[in-house]
């Protein structure tokens, strides 16, 4: 497999991989193209001219509902979920690493959170709020619903990180007289920083795009995915694609920022001469 000459197997698999990537990106690129559809164009090809008509349409509130409001709610919710996921996963990772009574049940509870279907979370939180007489809101019930999806990812990433984390670094810091807080803040935290950025990326994007868990928990104001879904039933113009293009670009921007942050951390490390 590490042979110098490329085998037939390589070319077959490379072609398969290429098709897979095409399968992933092909549909996405058609809606990016179609969002520039001319003013009289429809939902499918051919392009009837090129225009920014549908992007303008997006900001005329009466045409497509409350795009601005739902966008800012989703953004805010994503940031809240991101921050909470990073902090809670990191703390839980530290706890699991040290070990405590009940670690195994909590681990299985975390895994369960990943496999319980999202419609159940949505229904359950909706019912629990109804029974408790609380009003569901995007910043309370939907926030909690999103955390049940992002936290398991965060905890599993921290689990993987700490399983490969050599305690020698901390022990060296302790031997040099560092307190446990100093060892954590100046040794552990910088080493795991790129993983924390990754956890944050997951936290934000999973929340920003979440639909099923928000369905019954968002209360009276829609988040962006709910708004988009509502549009699929009553909007028959390419403004739908324009909205798709804009939200996809936001996702791409977030991914780009996260990767750039990780790259910057890596470069600083190389400068300091640590791997």
């Amino acid at each position: 497999m590490q042979a110098d000459r490329r085998t037939l197997e390589f070319y077959l698999l490379a072609a398969f991989f290429g098709l897979f990537v095409l399968f992933l990106y092909g549909p996405l690129s058609t809606i990016l193209l179609l969002s520039f559809q001319g003013p009289n164009g429809g939902l499918t090809f051919p392009m009837n001219g090129v225009s920014l008509r549908w992007f303008q349409n997006l900001f005329e509130t009466q045409a497509v509902g409350d795009f601005g409001g739902s966008f800012s709610r989703s953004l805010m919710l994503g940031l809240m979920v991101m921050a909470t996921t990073v902090v809670v996963s990191l703390l839980a990772g530290l706890a699991f690493r040290r070990g405590f009574l009940g670690a195994t049940p909590l681990f299985y509870l975390t895994i369960s959170s990943l496999v319980v279907p999202s419609i159940l979370i949505s229904l359950g939180i909706g019912l629990a709020f109804q029974i408790a007489g609380l009003e569901p809101n995007w910043w309370s019930s939907a926030f909690g619903a999103h955390l049940t999806w992002t936290l398991p990812f965060g905890v599993l990433i921290m689990f993987a990180v700490f399983n490969r984390f050599s305690p020698a670094y901390e022990e060296a810091a302790r031997d040099l007289g560092a307190t446990s807080w100093q060892a954590f803040a100046h040794v552990v935290l910088p080493i795991i920083a790129p993983s924390l950025v990754g956890v944050g990326l997951f936290g934000f994007t999973l929340s920003y795009d979440e639909f099923a868990r928000t369905l019954m928990t968002a209360g009276s104001f829609n988040t962006l995915p709910l708004e988009i879904y509502g549009m699929t039933t009553n909007v028959t113009t390419p403004v739908l694609y324009a909205l798709g293009a804009v939200t996809t670009l936001v996702s791409f921007a977030v991914i780009g920022i996260a990767l750039a942050t990780i790259a910057i951390i890596a470069r600083q490390r190389r400068k300091l001469g640590v791997s």
Binding site: L34, P225, G244, T247
Partner: peptide, 15 residues
């Protein structure tokens, strides 16, 4: 692509 919206990815099959 997996970090972008599921709804949009479904809609993108329509055209």
């Amino acid at each position: 692509p997996f970090l972008t919206s599921n709804i949009i990815r479904m809609i993108s099959w329509v055209p």
